[in-house]
Nucleic acid binder design. Structure first.
Lengths: 334, 334
DNA sequence: CTCGCTTTTGCAAGCGTGTGCAAATGCTGC
DNA sequence: GCAGCATTTGCACACGCTTGCAAAAGCGAG
């Protein structure tokens, strides 16, 4: 199409009767412009519908203002609430979020990071999978910052944010014991994510300290349906558990529904249930799930403030946050 | 910092012993390069870790490859599943999604569109609020395409995707009557969104045709908690309803929980419930909600295919999709 | 080998910005 | 009015890329 599309600083300059640099400086904070010309420029810009081209600006400044969010299972309650918090924080800091969905193949996190590099993203925040060492090196070499949330903890360079999964697992184990539970179980998926496995290990270890065994059920990938299936595995055992710690709230919801509707069990009288994440559904009156709250706002704040801070971003940093236990009625006592 | 950051096409050209244009052409599909030089370039690029700068490319081509998703309440099940589908489709078409959260102020949709213009987004998809006419004009004038999903339907220029809300409302009304229900109710929020109001109007109109009245309850903004409150309004009436159509599934979940746990009612024996959206929770065994399924994948496909299609994008277009009724057990019979 | 044709290649202009540098302007105090 | 200074302004180059254009190279036929 032959029509003139965007209006450039040049045109604004002409209309305002100033030089193009004056226009540029008007829209660059901290630049030297007299109030008079500044106003002339602003008027002309408004009249013409001018908007600074962030593509060109990013090209010049070597700083695009873009932050990539690399995430799978976007539709999941916990993930989407984290995305909400992150976009919020990013926008507060003048950044903008580029969302990359990695639900498909397995190398898709690497592909996503490549995309991030192409758009010269200032940083990438990874909520899913774990990228190749070679790619992360490429990112770092390209001056891109990396944040790993609830991912592996032995990585060089980036910021790693994790929760105190083991400590939480230990707390819930003692809570079960205090509630008089005798046969502990752990419900997990087969995803093998670091944080899920940390909860499993922590729970087993804590139980051992208290002189108890844990029976573990795992199935599929981390969601409601898997919770149901694991419930079927665990509740048909000869020694039926009377307490189960589910690796996530979604698993817990599936587990509770199966326990109640398929096995006609009463919670917490016949079995105590705990979860992790504190998704919205955990507070619904059908579940009233006792669970650990992911501090999503703190996570987001921590991540974003590290991204925008200009000093010493190359040294790797590890943040361990605390997950508060939210007491509801799926465990006796409390 | 003085270190060299990104590697440019120039450097790749030198290493490969060809001109810069050869490098450019190698990474531009449909350009004329001999297989021999092409391979030389690819090798050099791989060795140096080169990635095309999409900022610069977008600047030249006047086409950034960026599509803005403008959305509020990102953490909500329906919204997040739509985001999932949209990012998926966009990536399939070689586009990338920029996610803008408009949870905060009321003019934030306009702000978001401004941001979209700054990054020269090829298009914006709006899932929340409704932008100022002046801004949408600006977008269109700037060659940006606009998609409105479940928004107002009398807009010029953009693609509008809506569901057949009235028809769905009519279908559920007859379903209630067929189940023998006598006193119909509608549960809504106070958001006043076009689609919510269309469902309300449609339901009332259909009921009138069948010679029945509808009592309407509205509260707060569209979510679980509002559903509970509306249940308290409606179930304490002298003439307690025996059928309720909830404007969304979240409202329905809240309504069902209140009906069961606060009013000890049995569903569907004492009251039939229907929802809209078919979020994941609707299929959970605690709810088993009969509801209309938002065809999120179709919506996403429709939106994205219109965006990438190069012909005739300026004429405005309106698509009305059908919402299938998913029968579960929250209505008698079926 | 030469001619005519197609494919490949390099040159250079341009996309819309930011910014260092030097010239110009404004202001203060004599 | 003028020197001395701080502030503002314009010029011109750079950022990394695409692409039209013309020159160069390849290629088959005579």
């Amino acid at each position: 199409m032959s029509q003139k599309l965007f209006v450039s600083a040049q045109e604004v300059a002409e209309k305002a009767g100033v030089s193009r640099s004056a226009v540029s400086r008007t829209f660059t904070s901290g630049a030297s412009v007299s109030p008079k010309t500044r106003q002339k420029v602003l008027d002309a810009a408004e009249a013409l519908g001018y908007h600074v081209n962030h593509l060109a600006r990013g090209l010049m400044r070597n700083e695009s203002g873009i932050v990539c969010l690399i995430v799978s299972e976007i539709g999941t309650p916990y993930r989407s609430s984290l995305i909400r918090a992150l976009t919020q924080q990013l926008q507060n800091s003048g950044k903008v979020a580029m969302l990359i969905n990695t639900d498909r193949s397995d190398g898709s996190v690497d592909l996503a990071l490549r995309q991030a590099i192409r758009y010269r993203a200032d940083a990438s925040i990874i909520l899913s999978g774990l990228p190749d060492k070679s790619i992360t090196d490429l990112c770092l070499k390209n001056g891109q910052r990396l944040v790993l949330i609830n991912r592996d903890d032995d990585r060089e360079g980036p910021l790693r944010i994790n929760l105190d999964d083991e400590e939480a697992a230990a707390r819930i184990a003692t809570a079960f014991v205090r509630a008089g539970c005798k046969r502990l179980a752990f419900a997990n998926s087969e995803a093998g994510t670091p944080s899920l496995m940390a909860r499993e290990r922590g729970f087993i270890a804590a139980a051992a300290t208290l002189g108890m065994d844990v029976v573990v059920g795992r199935y599929g990938h981390t969601g409601y349906e898997a919770g149901r299936i694991v419930a079927q595995q665990l509740l048909t055992l000869k020694e039926r558990p009377d307490a189960v710690f589910c690796a996530t709230d979604l698993l817990a919801c599936g587990f509770m529904d199966a326990a109640r509707h398929q096995f006609s069990m009463s919670i917490p009288d016949q079995i105590c249930v705990a979860g992790f994440d504190d998704i919205e559904q955990a507070s619904w009156s059908s579940y009233q799930l006792t669970t650990f709250a992911q501090p999503v706002d703190t996570i987001a704040r921590e991540a974003v403030s590290w991204l925008v801070e200009d000093g010493a971003a190359l040294e790797s940093r590890s943040v361990r946050l605390h997950a508060d236990l939210v007491w509801r009625t799926s465990i006796r006592g409390g």
